[in-house]
Design a protein around this nucleic acid. Structure first.
Length: 876
DNA sequence: CGGATCGAC
DNA sequence: CTATGTCGATCCG
């Protein structure tokens, strides 16, 4: 057992950290100097650096062994370390599982997998796109460089930016001592006692970053910043335009003011290179850059340096993944290009350690290493095995990596999906402190949310105890939250539960965080504002989603439930919660365990019970079936649902039969969902399951296929990506309307039962569906968007129903790409996951995508009809 | 849906 | 003494 693994791994994180680079006086004479070293190639630079590394006057570094020893001494025995060991063991267990799985793979299976994967390889190769020029720009030791620029005293010293507890970055002097990002300052001090630690100053970095971005936008207005110090550019268009540019447009001047300043510029990528035809010094203090991609990138780096006195490294390649790795090759202050040729790409990858690939982190590296995979070419060699051991998403990503495929265009950032805030502190163990901190976090978060005008439906509480164990607890509510009070109302419950769970011991934590996610989509927002508010305002009774100005939701809820005995269940539930909340006034009662004292819980239960009793007496409703439009009366919601199910079933099965006819599949009528999966999945994939989780696996798949149609209907709706552009997404809208307004009773999501209980939900749907409007009002139909004059909400509701049904059924009929888990081949056998980096850098190349976010594009990729065909072919 | 994890900056 | 903060994504139950 290598107990120091965590830290040797961080040693491997060393991306050229132990480097030496020369500083030049960047002045007119510099240009001439550069010419002299102009031929120094990448490898020369490397040798040069290595040679100089050990004997720079006065700056001795530490070798890796020494570094690890010091870190270990400072670490071992700490709570942190114990937790690291634990995590490490978990990874080892995952590896063990994987190895067991591997043992069971037969040669037969492997050969079959090989064939299948290779078919895919051929297809991927055919679609390889080398026509784009993608550039990744990466500022060198950004924060540290800014600090050094602004305080010349720090220039020759080892410095790090951050605090005693955590460093954000270090300069290259400090890196020679093993001091690097994500290392606590006190350990860094042990490695390098002379280290100067400068506190973070984000405002400053942001300003510098903006200056850099201004330059970048001239080359690609759609460039994609990744944090403050990195960005991707697509230079393809710029390069085309540039071919006709006159020389003057490519001429840039030295910043005469700063020429007296020392500026960092490395020797191995000189400004003047071996292409003197393209660029020459036509005036004393200016340079003209050429037309090639490399020239453009040099120009960019030159301009960045002139403007900010900071250096950047860059990578040029046909896709983002490669560009990113390239920018690392000649860091700092260098650039590297992979020519747009297949062979060049493969050569680059041949001996490249997988850890350098964006998205392959510590864990994935270790798991692959267990399989004997360290370099990208080994990743390719083992492609068949990987396809059997990892999830589809993972192994396909591995395949993309080993072929050097990546995103060839830059996607605009999607909408934000969550917002959170968290804080680390010294041990906190009283409930009082914890609740007030929680409130504080909620307040901060609410402020940020309101800045962006966001409201979310799920609140997540994150806790890290003093042993560094992290827990998250989430709860989603039906109406979205955004204010401090609303968020805290949810978060405090979660926190209370956790405190209770360790009682009578105190909860000892060192971090708390609050996150809000599940934001309303643009459409949801729009409709909520456009029609629902006006709709609700027009009636005298206020629905539970009331957005009355000047009245907080809670006031609303309380009022409603108290004033009107016919308020919805949700109103009452909220009222009960509100009551509960009011018992807690944080400043006074926080210390007295206000959330779990018997009294308030009893009250809560009582209140809830009252509500249900009240509701259950209020039964037997007549409603119009949203599918067949026939009036149904029933006192039993099960029955209603069954009726809807049957109705839907009729429509639905008909639709699917038609679809399968179109597809020439000629299979039995019900054979449209998971069966497809079974037929296409390699035997081995199935075996994996059986081996791991016993024999009931196959039962679960057939369960799915025989599940009733409502479930399918639910899937259709909930599997839709929730952020589609125009034309508006009808099923989303349907869900929206159903969930929020209950215009008609229909079981849309089973999830809500978790929070409110089944019977209660029933009551909600059957009792508060229809509102009564007293005066004539103009309402906007949330489906067709047309204005409807009406005196009766019933008639308005009917209109909406008609609209919805038209659209919904039409949409379902048109739906070619059935939402399926068709290629979601396994459950129990996944050993690897994907992360954001991979999503961002490796979406399928060049395909049209309609403004989806990275995650959506991937799930789209896995589910879309295109990929279905691909895989169907692939598995034939 | 909720919880744990991974990965990136 | 002293081991971050924020986000997106996947996977499993």
């Amino acid at each position: 057992m290598r107990c120091g693994l965590v830290f040797t791994a961080s040693g491997q994180l060393d991306l050229g950290g132990i480097k030496f680079y020369k500083t030049y006086l960047f002045s007119r004479s510099t240009v001439k100097n550069m010419k002299k070293v102009g031929n120094s190639s990448c490898s020369d630079g490397f040798l040069l650096r290595m040679g100089l590394n050990d004997n720079k006057a006065g700056m001795q570094g530490l070798d890796k062994e020494k570094i690890n020893k010091i870190i270990m001494e400072a670490t071992k025995g700490s709570r942190f370390y114990e937790n690291e060991l634990k995590k490490d063991q978990q990874v080892n267990q995952r590896i063990e599982k994987m190895m067991q799985l591997k043992e069971k793979i037969t040669t037969q299976q492997l050969l079959k997998a090989q064939l299948q994967v290779d078919k895919l390889v051929i297809e991927l190769e055919q679609n390889r796109n080398l026509s784009n020029t993608i550039v990744h720009i990466d500022m060198d030791a950004f924060y540290a460089a800014v600090e050094m620029r602004d305080n010349p005293e720090l220039k020759e010293k080892p410095i790090a930016v951050g605090s005693m507890s955590m460093l954000s970055t270090s300069n290259y002097h400090a890196r020679r001592f093993g001091v690097r990002a994500a290392m606590p300052g006190f350990i860094a001090k042990k490695l390098c006692p002379h280290l100067t630690i400068v506190p973070l100053n984000f405002e400053k970095y942001g300003k510098v970053s903006k200056e850099v971005r201004e330059i970048l936008s001239e080359y690609d207005p759609n460039f994609m910043p990744m944090g403050l110090d990195e960005a991707y550019l697509n230079l393809t268009e710029h390069l085309e335009e540039r071919q006709n540019w006159p020389e003057d447009r490519r001429r840039f001047f030295f910043n005469t003011e700063s020429t007296t300043e020392k500026v960092l510029f490395e020797d191995n990528t000189p400004l003047m290179d071996d292409d003197p035809e393209q660029r020459h010094q036509s005036e004393e203090n200016s340079v003209v850059f050429g037309n090639s991609a490399e020239e453009v990138v040099k120009e960019i780096r030159f301009r960045i340096e002139q403007k900010t006195q900071l250096t950047a490294s860059a990578g040029i390649a046909p896709n983002t993944m490669l560009a990113k790795m390239c920018s690392d090759c000649n860091k700092p202050n260098g650039q590297y290009k992979i020519p747009p040729e297949r062979q060049a790409v493969l050569d680059f990858l041949k001996d490249l350690p997988i850890r350098k690939v964006p998205g392959i982190g510590k864990v994935t590296e270790k798991m692959l290493k267990a399989l004997g995979i360290v370099t990208c070419s080994e990743l390719y060699q083992q492609r068949a095995l990987l396809s059997l051991l990892f999830s589809e998403a993972s192994w396909r990503n591995f395949l993309d990596i080993s072929l050097g495929l990546g995103s060839t265009h830059l996607e605009r950032d999607g909408e934000r999906k969550s917002m959170s805030t968290e804080r680390t502190f010294s041990e906190m163990n009283t409930a009082e402190d914890q609740y007030s901190l929680c409130r504080e976090l909620c307040r901060d978060l609410a402020q940020e949310l309101q800045k962006e005008g966001l409201k979310g439906k799920t609140v997540t509480l994150k806790l890290k105890n003093v042993n560094f164990e992290v827990k998250t607890r989430a709860s989603t509510v039906l109406s979205s939250v955004s204010t401090e009070e609303e968020i805290f109302a949810v978060a405090k419950d979660l926190l209370g539960t956790e405190i209770d769970s360790v009682a009578p011991h105190p909860l000892r934590i060192r971090l708390m965080g609050v996150r809000v996610s599940g934001f309303l989509s643009e459409e949801e927002k729009k409709y909520q504002q456009k029609s629902i508010t006006s709709f609700l305002k027009s009636g005298r009774e206020v629905g539970f989603l009331s957005l009355q100005p000047g009245m907080s939701n809670q006031e609303c809820f309380t009022k409603n439930s108290e004033a009107s005995p016919r308020g919805s269940f949700f109103d009452k539930k909220r009222a009960a919660r509100q009551l509960n909340r009011e018992n807690f006034s944080p400043n006074e009662t926080v210390g007295k365990q206000p959330f779990h004292d018997g009294k308030s819980s009893a009250k809560f239960v009582e209140e809830t019970k009252k509500v249900t009793d009240l509701q259950s007496s209020n039964v037997c409703k007549i409603f119009t079936c949203p599918v067949c439009f026939e009036e149904q009366s029933s006192n039993n919601l099960e029955e209603l649902n069954r009726h809807i199910d049957e109705c839907l079933n009729g429509t639905f099965i008909k639709d699917t039969v038609e679809m399968s006819k179109n597809n020439n599949s000629g299979e039995s009528t019900l054979n449209f969902l998971p069966q497809v999966k079974n037929e296409n999945v390699d035997e081995c994939q199935k075996n994996k399951k059986d081996q791991l989780a016993g024999s009931d696996q196959s039962a679960s798949t057939s369960d799915k296929s025989t599940s009733n149609s409502t479930d399918k209907f639910t899937q259709v709706i909930s599997d839709k990506p929730n952020r589609e552009r125009q034309p508006s997404n009808l099923s989303d809208m349907a869900r929206n309307v159903c969930m929020k307004q209950c215009l008609f009773p229909m079981r849309i999501s089973q999830g809500s039962e978790d929070h409110f209980g089944k019977t209660e939900h029933t009551e909600e749907t059957s009792s508060s569906c229809f509102f009564e409007a007293k005066e004539e009002s103009v309402l906007v139909c949330p489906v067709c968007n047309s204005e409807q004059k009406t005196t009766s909400l019933v008639s308005f509701n009917r209109h909406v129903d008609v609209c919805l049904n038209k659209g919904l059924i039409q949409e379902l009929t048109e739906k070619k790409d059935f939402p399926t888990k068709t290629y979601n081949m396994e459950n129990s056998d996944r050993v690897g996951g994907l992360s954001r980096g991979q999503q961002c850098t490796n979406p399928s190349q060049g395909t049209k995508r309609s403004g989806l976010t990275a995650s959506q594009s991937v799930s789209k990729k896995a589910k879309s009809s295109n990929s279905k065909h691909t895989i169907e072919k692939f598995f034939k």
